[in-house]
Design a protein around this nucleic acid. Structure first.
Length: 225
DNA sequence: GATTGATCATAC
DNA sequence: GTATGATCAATC
């Protein structure tokens, strides 16, 4: 397997690398980039994502930059079962609680993050040892007009609730494709939002997530099935 | 069995 | 604490 630690300079180069990963097991990919394989993901939830980042030459994680500098492509691994069904929702970005009521969809973080995504489906069945799980065929995706309209509808509804100061009434049930759920290290973390009178309110940080059915539909449209 | 709310690791 | 990468696990 040929892998460079240098950043890919074009989408074509990025795709070629991603396609070279398809069909391989995580144990082999990890060996190439010198990452130990944990026994399971319970204490290493981000391991698969970091592994693929390194294998594709993404810039270092945990910085507020695109995954591939200059390419403006967001990398997302997606756990799937043996039939290709998505096993988890996909985290998109944190919710800017204080400002979201004054932001339009067009300039939203969600729209920016999802404008161009490289999806890498990876076996995620818990019964399968991590090192044995296979990487699937990559998909470089941008939302269709229909998909973007659907996302915009959900986003505006969710942003509206938060902007009105109703964050505490917002649950993961709202939103057909996009939802808002907690995103924090633990239940004691606080973030600032606004209440119904426009005052300050401390609450759990939240994130936008894509429902599993939505990402599954993206794969299905591309690969059939 | 699917889904929501809770949580885990690491870099800075 | 804030950002990145997500999955776990209790509950519906």
């Amino acid at each position: 397997m040929q892998l460079s630690l240098m950043a890919p300079r074009s989408e074509a180069e990025l795709m070629a690398r991603a396609e070279a990963l398809a069909g391989r097991v995580l144990r082999d990919v990890a060996a190439v980039v010198s990452m130990p394989v944990p026994a399971d993901l319970r204490h290493h939830k981000g391991w698969v994502g970091h592994l693929v980042e390194r294998a594709l030459g993404a810039s270092a994680a945990s910085r507020d930059e695109p995954d591939f500098v200059g390419l403006d492509v967001e990398l997302k691994t997606l756990p799937v079962d043996e039939r290709g069904h998505a096993l988890e929702s996909t985290f998109v970005c944190t919710v800017p609680l204080r400002e979201i009521g004054e932001v339009d969809w067009a300039e939203s973080r969600v729209r920016r993050k999802l404008a161009r995504v490289l999806w890498i489906p990876i076996e995620g069945m818990r019964h399968k040892p991590l090192g044995d799980r296979r990487v699937g065929a990559p998909l470089l995706w941008s939302p269709t007009r229909e998909q973007e309209e659907a996302l915009r509808f959900d986003w505006e509804e969710l942003a509206g609730v938060i902007g009105r100061g109703d964050i505490e009434s917002l649950t993961g049930h709202l939103g057909r494709h996009l939802q808002v759920r907690p995103k924090a290290a633990h239940g004691g973390v606080r973030a600032r939002s606004i209440d119904a009178e426009g005052g300050m309110l401390e609450t759990l940080p939240r994130g936008f997530y894509l429902r599993a059915q939505f990402t599954e539909a993206i794969l299905r449209q591309a690969f059939g099935g």
